[in-house]
Write a protein that binds this DNA or RNA. Structure first.
Length: 221
DNA sequence: GCGACAG
DNA sequence: ATCTTGTCGC
């Protein structure tokens, strides 16, 4: 996959936040097109302290058709250097190198991170979706910002995540009785479209299949 | 102002 | 990441 270069990655935290604010307006425009998506392939992208991994799955049978892994440069993502809200600046370069290795066509990407459910509306999933020019969704275990009511216990039930007047994501029950997942639009998808994609890709398990496949690639080896 | 804070 | 609890795989 090819990726657009819109800015430097080696920047101060203050500069990183300015970049996020300037890119967030492009995301906003991309969310206006709320065409329902019927992907034939979905990629999952996961990072760990050691590596970034991308797994490409076919939606017909959820078989993995390609996997790529890139080790992180040693000093970048140590806990000491990680800042909530700036995750993309810690892991973005390695993730994009993994995407550059991907040869298969990818219709949509799911990230184990937030999309627009972010203090400046540019979580890693939104940021990288924009640079890749591919619709994307963020799927996280816990909230970074915003408020929500607890969703019902049945699979498919969800409540909006709100920050002030804005709806920035969904608290979604992807599996009955299990802890909900926080889903938010990345690039070129609405909240409803993001919920639909999460439910399409997660059936037996709480976590969407592309992320379940990518996780051990990022951690293992 | 203080603490919490995606991975 | 790290900790704890609830998720997940047998």
């Amino acid at each position: 996959m090819r990726c657009q270069k819109l800015h430097d990655w080696e920047v101060t935290p203050e500069e990183a936040e300015r970049i996020q604010l300037s890119l967030a307006s492009r995301i906003q425009r991309s969310l206006e097109s709320r065409a329902p998506i019927r992907p034939s392939t979905v990629a999952g992208a996961v990072v760990s302290a050691e590596a970034a991994a991308v797994a490409v799955l076919r939606t017909s049978d959820f078989a993995m058709v390609e996997a790529q892994r890139v080790e992180l440069p040693r000093p970048v993502a140590t806990p000491m250097h990680y800042r909530p809200g700036l995750m993309a600046f810690a892991y973005g370069p390695a993730l994009l190198r993994a995407f550059e290795l991907v040869e298969s066509p990818v219709d949509v990407v799911m990230f184990r991170a937030h999309g627009i459910a972010h203090p400046r509306r540019l979580g890693l999933a939104a940021h990288l979706g924009l640079l890749l020019g591919v619709p994307s969704v963020g799927c996280a275990d816990k909230l970074l910002c915003g408020e929500h009511a607890p969703p019902g216990l049945e699979r498919g039930e969800w409540t909006p995540v709100r920050d002030g007047d804005e709806i920035i994501g969904a608290c979604l029950r992807t599996r009955g009785g299990a802890r909900p997942l926080f889903v938010s639009p990345g690039y070129a998808l609405s909240v409803e479209g993001s919920v639909d994609l999460a439910l399409l890709t997660a059936s037996r398990y709480r976590m969407p299949e592309p992320l379940r496949e990518a996780r051990p690639l990022a951690e293992g080896h």
